[in-house]
Amino acid sequence: MRKSRATWLSRISTVEMLFTATVTLVASLIGSWLKQLPVLNLFGALILALILGMLLQFPIRIGYVGRNDARRAGVKDAAGLISNKLLRLGIILLGFKLNLHVLFTQGLKCLPIALVVVTFTIVVCYAIARALHIDPMLAILTAGGTGICGAAAVMGLSGAIKVSDERQNEKDDDITMAVAIVAIMGTVFALLEIALGPLTGMTHNQLGLVAGASLHEIAHAVAAGAAFGAVDIATIMKLSRVLMLVFAAIAIAVWWDRFHAEVEPDGKRSIAFPWFMLGFIAASIIGTFVPFVSGIAPHLVDAAYVVLGMAMAALGINVNFKAIASKGRKAVLASFLASILLTCLTMGIAVLFF
């Protein structure tokens, strides 16, 4: 225990950790500010923080790291620690966004729809990705981000996938790729739905339901719902899908352990269980039923996005651009095809049941 504590202290009490934490915090805050601007609000704070982190990689490498190998290793370790630990804290805090009373009353009809569309999208997107010979880790992260709630889902599901230290860089690159892919797809389909939705002849509520059930990021669903004058149903439908993140993370943890877990040198398997998802549920319960906490829940959600933005910026700092260029194209196609099928499915559900 003392050795473990000493190791942690040695990793967090460094100049590189202070530098990296400051840089990622600034990137996260700038991303939160930029999301308020027209057009950029379709991307959301997390995607913007990731992009800023990727851009900052170059000045950090040239101006701060230089040829100092120890400093390079320190920044890499600090960014990895921030992306790994803060994403879990951010997901827990994001639970305060879920008002269970609203979901289980006004959104009661949306919950079974969310279960159907999330299951359908993850299974179909993963199947398409594997048919295109995409590796299982990138395939499932892309499928989860497409089916549930974009970047937050990718980061949440990544906690259900445990890999060896040797493969951690590969995992980080896959997370970054999946986040970028669902950001692109979500933005493209949000613009398409806003432009073409009124031409379908569906009612405002039906269009709002489709937006909440098919678009990837919460920002996308809210933007499209507002354009249709149905932001409430779009938001409730989207939050119903966010709730599915808990069950999806647990199911994927079990599935990954069963079919893809790595074997340790002592013969044991690397098992990961997303315990932080229990914190996500606890936060949603506390935020819904504890009066004092429910009053400050919006501020806690803002804090969640700042923390998650730091994790995203840290991913961007460590991203391998060559890996993204070589592996990302087929994953984009898989998400695109799955998004088309998801939109068609949700339009059918909207016409039949709303």
Rank of each mutant, 00 (worst) to 15 (best):
I128L: 13
D232A: 14
R167K: 15
F104M: 08
T203Q: 15
A152S: 15
V123Y: 02
A143H: 06
A183F: 08
M237W: 08
K109V: 10
D232V: 10
D172R: 10
L100A: 07
G144A: 08
A230Y: 05
T187D: 01
M185Y: 00
L98M: 12
V179A: 13
N99G: 07
E217C: 01
I122V: 14
T121H: 06
V123E: 00
V210D: 03
L111R: 03
K162H: 11
A139S: 08
G229A: 11
G197P: 00
T187W: 06
I128E: 09
A127K: 01
L115K: 03
V116K: 01
T187N: 04
V123A: 13
L138K: 06
I175V: 10
V117C: 07
G147W: 01
P198M: 04
V182P: 14
L98G: 12
F96S: 02
H220L: 02
Q168H: 13
D165Y: 02
G159Y: 01
A153I: 02
A153M: 04
I148P: 05
M155R: 09
A153R: 08
G156N: 04
L111E: 04
N99D: 15
N169T: 07
V117N: 11
D173C: 02
P198Y: 02
C110Q: 12
V182D: 10
Y126T: 08
V163G: 07
V117G: 11
G95L: 07
D172S: 12
I233Q: 06
F104T: 14
I218N: 09
L196M: 09
G107C: 03
A223E: 14
M177P: 15
L115P: 11
I113T: 05
V154P: 12
H101Y: 10
M155E: 03
N205F: 11
T142A: 10
I122N: 15
K97G: 09
G145A: 13
M155T: 07
F120A: 09
T187E: 11
K171P: 11
H220F: 02
E217V: 04
A227D: 12
